[in-house]
Amino acid sequence: MKKRYLVFLLIALSCTSLFVGVTRISPLDLFRFDDHQTQIFWQSRVPRLISILIAGVTLSISGFIMQQLSRNKFVSPTTAGTMDSARFGILIALIVFTSASPFEKMIVAFVFSLVGTFLFMKILDRIKMKDPIFIPLVGLMFGNIISSITTFFAYKHDLIQNMSAWLQGDFSMITAGRYEMLYISIPLVMIAYIFADRFTIAGLGEDFAKNLGLNYKQAVNVGLIIVALSTTLVVLTVGLIPFLGLVVPNIVSLYRGDNLKNSLFDTALLGAVFILFCDILGRIIIFPYEIPIGLTVGVIGSGIFIYLLMRRRDYA
């Protein structure tokens, strides 16, 4: 039943998103736009909406996949160094190919975030202390380290302020021609849907998966590739959006339990609704200026994360 409300909310928020902005565009004008309005609508508003939806869906699903694979509710692209690795990759791309094309940046950043995430999963395997709260701690520290390595190179090449821009997710720069790369995520989401059950089984461990006749390595690799690639795409086009992949799947599992395929759809839906809401909030709070999405999601997301932690402890 909840799904129906979510879909309704998604449509309502999407419409709102299209008609909030400095240039007044009202739904009533829909069929009699002047040139300026048409241009804004198709060049800015629609691309923005699409990129918000894709970013929300893919980041939440990435978090969901990582949580299934690691069997830990607190693992996500933010708490496993994926985002920081992607940022490191972008920096390397900027340094190595001085005028890197978006595609080159994507490839390099993707490789880095894949390696980073993989490294984290390896560390996870080897850590003896399985205290669920300890894992994200290690992940966040791991992310800090990647960042400090990034800083090391950024400092040498005078790119610090440049990298700060990549640190902050921001949709206001999205216009037609600058976001299309995000479309690559759509097939990824479909693959995630097909593989959902396998991720869950793989999360129960290699022996367990083998026992059920599942190709463990394949499932894990597919999962990590989806996570790394979609995170990279979001970081590259939008910037860092912290905690989204962490908070959304957790909220879904609160009201839905950990039921696989259904949760995946809910996760995607809620992720889109959540980020849309944050974006609209950021756009109206200090209108006509706007607060970047990285900050709004960072604030609301970290608040929810702390709440989830507190709540967990009551049951511990």
């Binding site: 933010t78 205290d131 709260i133 300890f134 994200p136 701690l137 966040l140 520290m141 700060s164 640190l167 902050q168 912290p242 905690f243 607060i291 970047p292 990285g294 900050l295 960072g298 604030v299 970290s302 994360f305 702390i306 932690l309 402890r313």
Partner: peptide, 21 residues
């Protein structure tokens, strides 16, 4: 104690968001 650290770390990320803004 890990809870304390995680809490601190998250609040740190939170400060970090403001700083980079």
């Amino acid at each position: 104690i890990y809870f304390l650290l995680l809490l601190g770390l998250i609040v740190g990320t939170f400060f970090g968001s403001f700083t980079s803004f």
